[in-house]
Amino acid sequence: MATPVLDKVEAESAASPYITVTFRIRRFNPEISAEAVWEDFQLEIDPKERVLDGLHKIKWDVDGTLTFRRSCAHGICGSDAMRINGKNRLACKTLIKDINPEKPITVEPIKGLTVLKDLVVDMEPFFQAYRDVMPFLITKDTNEPTRERFQTAEDRERFDDTTKCILCAACTSSCPVFWNDGQYFGPAAIVNAHRFIFDSRDEAGEQRLEILNDKDGVWRCRTTFNCTDACPRGIEVTKAIQEVKRALITRRF
């Protein structure tokens, strides 16, 4: 059992770990002003802490009006997608040390969805697009099996990547097509359609493909790969979209 790496980490943490960083946050509260403004906060923080920890320090100790969504704080619930230093990330999965803390850290709401207050956006259009792809297993069984349906490990693996989606909207709100035209389904909805189209148990692939064949469907994708870069779950989003496009052409999936 090797331990040297860890001991080094621990030795470092024993010394005073704090550094001073500036959080530059996009503030907006229509109860106060129609304009959004940048506001700077300086704080002492351990660079191994998360951006979310920094936001909490501000909210709890400096300015209680700072508003953002968060819940699990470890990258599973998908509440705290935001634009950090110009890139979509989860605040709870981004460590201060990894985002150049010598310069001000900018934090803005994700783009393409209406900002309601500070970092909180209206998620309803995003979830509507998700619901529109019929994100549930559809089978034509008239007699349900008494036991589980069979699925080979290979068939299960076929759609494994897209089952990881946590609906955080980091992908959809990083997509230039979505910014310009909110009608586009966006990567997250296509990822969730993919999860069912390529599930060997599902029998509504054709229906889902027709939905995505729409003018606001997969063909709007310009393969900029922003979505793949933004996904905090490491899903190969652009690849999934390409697979759906290919399935539309070949009608094989």
């Binding site: 589980e148 349906r149 069979f150 699925q151 080979t152 490990a153 599930d199 148990r201």
Partner: peptide, 20 residues
């Protein structure tokens, strides 16, 4: 309860026989 979830679509890991 587990079989219900499978029928609802839950992607359980599978055995070489294709069962849960």
């Amino acid at each position: 309860s587990v079989l219900d979830l499978e029928k609802m679509g839950l992607p359980f890991n599978r055995t070489p026989d294709g069962t849960i």
